[in-house]
Amino acid sequence: MERMDSNPTPPDEHVSDGLSSTLSPSEVDSLWREHRRWVAAVILAHMPRDADLEDLLQDVALLMVRSLHTLNDLNAIRPWLRTIAINTSRSAGRKRKVRLRMRRDVEDLDTMSGTEAGVIAAEKDREARLERGRRLMEAAQGLPPAYREPLILRAVRGMSQKQVAEVLDLPETTVETRLVRARRMVREQIEREDAMPEPRAAGSLSQAELA
């Protein structure tokens, strides 16, 4: 596993004005908009299961804006933001909020219109994909972080393997290897689950067992 830098910010004495003095507020805003989706994915990969992604993302946004003065090189922003996201995730309290609004939007987008039969088929297909996605996500979240994070980051729309490597500060070849293994581990986990007998309801013992 790669070494995790405990502090993304260099000591203040080595910092001049950092980026915060050269970026306008709208540029800072654009910077956040450019990175917030994959930052959310990093949080998703590291936060406790019952933490609230939205809250944590807000914390990261605040920390980013507050701490930009410690960052001198815009090229280093991905690993820098990732470290903030990981630290924020790890410090997450156990808060829970329902976050359905955006999910609903995404699901709505996912079901495009067509003929009635086509819609029904698309709906069934969507449900199957959602269920499969839920299981894959659950299995992915059970992976060791070194495999979990690249797999989830790679699933972010528009996130290339090269960008994942930049965020993780790893060679692309390492990311590729981890992706291959992560996919295999997830697949095997689901195959194991599928091979397990379904739990029976209480009182459903067979005749042989009753005898």
């Binding site: 805003d29 939205e54 605040l62 995404v106 959602l130 996919r183």
Partner: peptide
């Protein structure tokens, strides 16, 4: 494998969609 990639991508997108709501704090 490709179906799983697409399904996981959909699941991740659903989770991180909330990011679109989060703006950087203004000056």
């Amino acid at each position: 494998a490709d179906a799983d990639r697409a399904a996981l991508a959909l699941a991740v997108e659903r989770e991180i969609a909330v990011a679109e709501l989060i703006e950087a704090p203004g000056a």
